[in-house]
């Protein structure tokens, strides 16, 4: 159905083309401001996404940290500590089976939170169909819409990740202190724990942003005509 302009019209459209310019991208700073306003004003919806990330990241950090702490204790603990652990039946870190089990649980936790974030983001896109359509009528480019949704999810991912990591670390350390006593603090493999921290941050933010890709794309594909629909 796409048609070519007849000759008469192409002359005037060539003249007109000069009068139409290309819309430029909004500055990154402005986009950040708008995204931040969206988060702040929609705290309820934002929290839902954030809580999902917090739970997943708390679980991830807790598992990774307790595993590392346990191994450090078994490797470098004093004879007295090892003795008391042995009496409680704790001689090896984790046998292969248990480790595989933990990995499965981790994988599931991350998957569940991934789906949760995806779902929340899709919902928030659907809720905002009209708003997105309106913004397009006002001159927003597709790329701005994608940028806004990705920025929003990055904010949520960062907050959720930091909170989740704090909770996970606190849980792992307090449990370690309970099981291994004061000796744990001397045994802590600080370098390894910091490296884990980096991994957790990457996983948390990465998870959120990847989960937001599809919803953001959906939002950008929205036709501005949607803004005109009178329902809702």
């Amino acid at each position: 159905m796409k048609k070519q302009s007849p000759q008469g019209a192409s002359a005037s459209s060539a003249a007109g083309r000069r009068r139409v310019q290309r819309q430029r991208q909004l500055s990154f700073q402005k986009a950040v401001q708008i995204a931040w306003r969206n988060i702040r004003q929609r705290l309820g919806r934002s929290l839902l996404v954030t809580i999902g990330i917090i739970l997943a990241l708390a679980f991830l950090t807790y598992i990774l940290y307790s595993d590392t702490i346990t191994r450090a204790a078994l490797r470098g603990g004093s004879p007295a500590l090892l003795d008391s652990l042995a009496r409680r039946g704790m001689t090896t870190v984790n046998d292969a089976d248990a480790r595989i089990q933990t990995r499965w649980m981790l994988g599931l936790a991350l998957l569940v939170s991934f789906v949760g974030i995806l779902n929340s983001m899709l919902l928030s896109v659907t809720e905002r169909f009209k708003e997105i359509g309106t913004m397009k009528c006002l001159g927003a480019l597709d790329s701005l819409i994608v940028e806004l949704f990705l920025l929003e999810s990055t904010f949520q991912g960062l907050v959720g990740t930091v909170a989740g990591i704090l909770i996970g670390v606190a849980l792992a350390l307090s449990e370690g202190a309970r099981v291994y006593g004061a000796e744990m603090w001397e045994l802590l493999p600080v370098g390894a724990l910091f490296r884990l921290l980096g991994i957790c941050v990457l996983v948390g933010v990465g998870l959120t942003v990847v989960a937001a890709l599809y919803p953001a794309w959906r939002a950008a594909k929205m036709e501005p005509v949607e803004a005109m629909r009178s329902e809702v």
Binding site: S12, S13, R19, V20, L141
Partner: peptide
């Protein structure tokens, strides 16, 4: 065809359309 300010809108790409919606 639709001409806005004598510009055939079918000839515009997405960036030009966005500009048109924004300014015209």
């Amino acid at each position: 065809q639709v001409f806005i300010d004598e510009v055939d809108i079918a000839a515009l790409d997405t960036f030009e359309l966005a500009w048109l919606r924004c300014h015209k």
